[in-house]
Computed example of a mutant assay.
Amino acid sequence: MKIVFYGSSLLSSYWNGAATYYRGLLRALAAHGHDITFYEPDAFGRQQNRDIDPPDWCRVVVYEASPESLARAVAEARQADVVVKASGVGYADDTLLAGVLEAAAPHAIRIFWDVDAPATLADLQAEPDHPSHAALQRLDLVLTYGGGDTVVDAYRVLGAADCVPIYNALDPTTHHPVAPDARFASTLGFLGNRLPDRESRVDAFFLAAAEALPQRDFLLGGSGWGDRRLPPNVRNIGHVPTRDHNAFNVTPMAVLNINRASMAATGFSPPTRVFEAAGAGACLITDEWPGIDLFLTPGEEILVARDGRDVADHVAGLTRERADEIGRAALRRVLAEHTYESRAILVDTLLRRLAAEKAAGLAA
């Protein structure tokens, strides 16, 4: 099928945590024979901070963040069998969604792919006049980054024809074990951009643990932390490009995952960092959220912390040997059950079923 996908960015992970999710899923979908074009706006300095070149498995079109360029990109939707608008594109999102739904051909499958369902649902529930309410009635399917039954039920209540979580996963061609890199040497590393509903949790889980263990060295990666006051044993290295994520994950004795507040509350939404770290064979400590045990086994394949004290206790009790054992177990689990190929099989099955239903409806 010919798929057009409107998202934040495939080429850059700069202020764009969804990049590796898009890359893993779309690469795997392309391997199932789909012809994919990804449309992304030139916004937020992402094009100046690319971490991959345009891939051979997907055509990428970068358009200016202007009404004229947006209109040209939207017009391309009429050529597609599947039209996907992702959440959080970053320029004129409401206009883009309305435009691609209008431009889509009668036979086309219309999908909204929500990579931040808790935030989107909060907006829709708080704003009865939000334009996305009308758009939901015209969609064939909502796909989400995760969320479990809570998100599925919420979307159905709002009028979605169907909602299916497509969880993050591992792309073993991009995230895998590598040799340690002295640039990232530390006891505990955390990689995440500074965001309003994450910062207080970084304080509680990462910085509090650093203050509790002043003799240990902590590593902070991600954009936006430059003006933040940090404990003296925390080293801030700024944005870490995708090409360095494997080394960042395997070099510290352990790495920490901290969900944003909305994701942690909703649960069942393991972020890309979980699978990327596991795919590199890292020992991962995560904040607690519902559904962890569906993906990795606490205490054996991942360590779970309720607060910064738990993080500090995990770090204080770890040896390199124990950390390596946990990392190896996590790697085995994600390779067996949580690759993007397995997620792509689900998406491919959904697309083929919807295409058959559309064809039957048009023929009736």
Rank of each mutant, 00 (worst) to 15 (best):
R156Y: 13
D123P: 02
A179M: 07
D140F: 06
A254G: 01
L136F: 00
R235W: 06
Q137V: 10
A161H: 13
N168M: 13
P177T: 07
D153Q: 15
R201A: 11
A122S: 11
A154G: 00
L191K: 01
A210E: 06
G222T: 06
D227G: 13
V250A: 04
N246V: 11
F206L: 03
I237E: 00
A160I: 08
T144D: 09
R201W: 04
V142A: 06
G159H: 06
T242K: 10
L195F: 07
I166G: 00
A204M: 08
L207V: 13
P214W: 08
F248E: 00
L121K: 12
L219F: 02
T174Y: 15
L188W: 05
P196G: 13
G192L: 04
P180M: 05
P232Y: 12
P180H: 12
I237M: 00
L230Y: 03
P131G: 08
A254Y: 00
A210N: 04
E127D: 15
L256Q: 10
D217F: 14
V178F: 03
T150F: 04
A161S: 15
L220N: 02
V178G: 01
R183A: 11
A169F: 01
P172R: 02
V240R: 03
A160H: 03
R243K: 15
W225S: 06
L143S: 10
A135N: 06
A210M: 12
T144K: 10
F184N: 11
R235P: 05
N249Y: 13
D227F: 05
G222M: 03
S186H: 13
A135T: 03
F205A: 04
A122G: 09
S132Q: 09
F190G: 05
G192P: 07
C163T: 14
D153S: 14
D217K: 12
L158E: 02
R156P: 01
A185I: 01
L220R: 00
D123M: 13
L219S: 01
M253Q: 07
A135K: 03
G146T: 04
F218D: 05
R229A: 15
S200V: 14
P177A: 13
T174F: 14
C163V: 08
P172N: 08
D153T: 15
D244Y: 01
G238Q: 09
N233W: 15
P165N: 11
A185P: 00
L219P: 02
C163S: 14
R201N: 08
V202M: 10
G192A: 10
R243Y: 09
G224F: 09
L141M: 06
L143M: 13
N257G: 06
R229Y: 06
L141K: 02
